[in-house]
Design a protein around this nucleic acid. Structure first.
Length: 432
RNA sequence: GGAGAGGUGGCCGAGUGGCCGAAGGCAACCGCCUGCUAAGCGGUUGUCCUGGGAGACUGGGACCGUGGGUUCGAAUCCCACCCUCUCCGCCA
């Protein structure tokens, strides 16, 4: 959420900045509402001030054993009615004003390249050389199905299309990836591991920006009304909702492995084969709460931490700086990590690292006190995948496949697989 | 799911209609005192909104789990809901 007062005081700056993202939200409607809201608020507060004065006077008289004039109390009764009606119109205007501002996206950071869509994104760097294959590399679903690692047909039978099902060594490999990532981030990058709820309420979803605008992307459970998390970012950011943190505790670095659930409404026809786009997928998430002045530097750190996973696995990747038109709703600045997929001959997104600045902190009311006596300020929030586990598994199967259909296990994963070096037709049963 | 108890400031805790943004204690901070430490003494310390001021500040309003209601006036009375704890039942 943007700062209401900031919009009121800098309407043209906000308008221009939001235009860099694309179609401008209805700022004028918002500004008009705010004018009306503040007028009603001022009137209401004046009425209440007078009421408070008169009530105090009555209280004083009673204490002194005198009776207040019945004419006065009658007048106050009328004033009280007026206050109530002002109160309800104020509540109405507040609701409208909140409803609107919650649909406004974050302001892009000044350093973000201006552009219309993904084609205007900027490649920051490429790391690692894509391997030269002496045979046509197979897509991951062929490699995986041949080795008995994944079984998407059976998954569809019980859940419908686009649900994952890992079997035997496939399940084991996925678990190894999760553990490798968590060990790296907690052991070497200083993150605190969290195992959070997977179902959260509407307030939590509003706090990170999924609601109210993107309800169609979420799985919802009724009675009680709860939502399945589309990313661990939601519970990790909400961990400190409505809190005032100590400045000395920042930055707070959190990591969590969770399944993620997305309806992917409107994504029909894209990546329908294989594991790239699923309704359910595993992800290790990185989240940071920082002081405003260090959030840019922390975004670089967080990006490096996500990159390190790809580096150690030996997967070629590139870093993309998203342009203003391609930024996510809550983000002020985003880097995407894209991993090389030989069967497609393309780089595909495997992580998205964003600085949301105070956008989510304002929605979730997460503040910190810079110094013992200072006023509280909103923290900055950052998040990034470290990494999407399913897509990492895809990348491993594709990049490390051999001509005979086997897959070489990256060195760093072997200790999680009892030293297994290769998945072959012979050991595919899952016995180690 | 059943029965009971309870939700007040950073924490503990008093407060049953006006003198309450809220006693008292703890904690933290500042100062004094004391060879050091401890103790002691004095002072300061909530959040949000909205106006004034360049600013230190300052006027007004709101906030005692949440939302309604009664009343001139609600932390206090009434209603609904949420959460926590204890016991019982069920259960991974």
């Amino acid at each position: 959420m943007l700062d209401k007062k900031f919009i009121r005081e800098n309407p043209e700056l906000v308008r221009e900045t939001l235009r860099k993202r694309g179609p401008e939200p209805d700022l004028d409607a918002f500004l008009g509402l705010e004018t009306r809201r503040l007028n009603v608020l001022r009137e209401l507060e004046n009425l209440r001030a007078r009421q408070n004065q008169a009530s105090e006077e009555i209280g004083r008289l009673k204490r002194e054993g005198q009776k207040p004039d019945p004419g006065i109390t009658a007048g106050l009764r009328a004033a009280s009615e007026q206050i109530k009606s002002h109160q309800s119109s104020l509540a109405e205007l507040e609701k409208e004003s909140d409803r609107l501002i919650l649909t406004f996206p974050n302001l892009p950071h000044a350093s973000v390249p201006v552009g219309r869509d993904a084609r205007d994104n900027i490649e920051v760097k490429k790391v690692g050389e894509p391997r030269k294959f002496s045979f046509p590399p197979r897509p991951h679903w062929e490699v995986g199905e041949n080795l008995g690692l994944i079984d998407l047909e059976r998954a569809a039978r019980m859940s419908g299309a686009s649900f994952p099902l890992f079997t035997g060594l496939g399940a084991r490999l996925e678990r190894a990836l999760i553990q490798f990532m968590l060990d790296l981030h907690t052991g070497e990058h200083g993150y605190r591991e969290i195992s959070p709820p997977l179902l959260v309420n509407a307030e939590a979803m509003t706090g990170t920006g999924q609601l109210p605008k993107f309800a169609q992307e979420l799985y919802r459970v009724e009675d009680p009304e709860l939502y399945l998390i589309p990313t661990a970012e939601v519970p990790l950011i909400n961990l400190h909702r409505d809190e005032i943190l100590k400045g000395e505790d920042l930055p707070i670095s959190l990591t969590a492995y969770t399944p993620c659930f997305r309806r992917e409404a409107g994504a029909h026809g894209r990546d329908t084969r294989g594991l790239i786009r699923q309704h359910q997928f595993d992800k290790v998430e990185l989240v940071k709460l920082t002081a405003p002045e260090s959030s840019s530097a922390e975004l670089e750190n967080l990006l490096r931490h996500a990159e390190e996973v790809l580096r150690r696995l030996g997967l070629p990747y590139r870093v993309i700086s998203l342009c203003t038109g391609d930024l996510g709703f809550a983000s002020a600045q985003t880097y995407d990590l894209e991993v090389w997929l030989p069967s497609e001959g393309e780089y595909r997104e495997i992580s998205s690292c964003s600085n949301c600045e105070s956008f989510q902190a304002r929605r979730s009311n997460i503040r910190f006190r810079p110094a013992e006596t200072a006023k509280p300020e909103y923290v900055h929030t950052l998040n990034g995948s470290g990494l999407a586990v399913g897509r990492t598994l895809v990348a491993v199967l594709e990049n490390f496949q051999e001509e005979d259909g086997s897959v070489t296990i990256p060195e760093v994963l072997r200790k999680y697989l009892d030293g297994l070096e290769k998945i072959t037709q012979e050991n595919r049963s899952g016995k180690l």
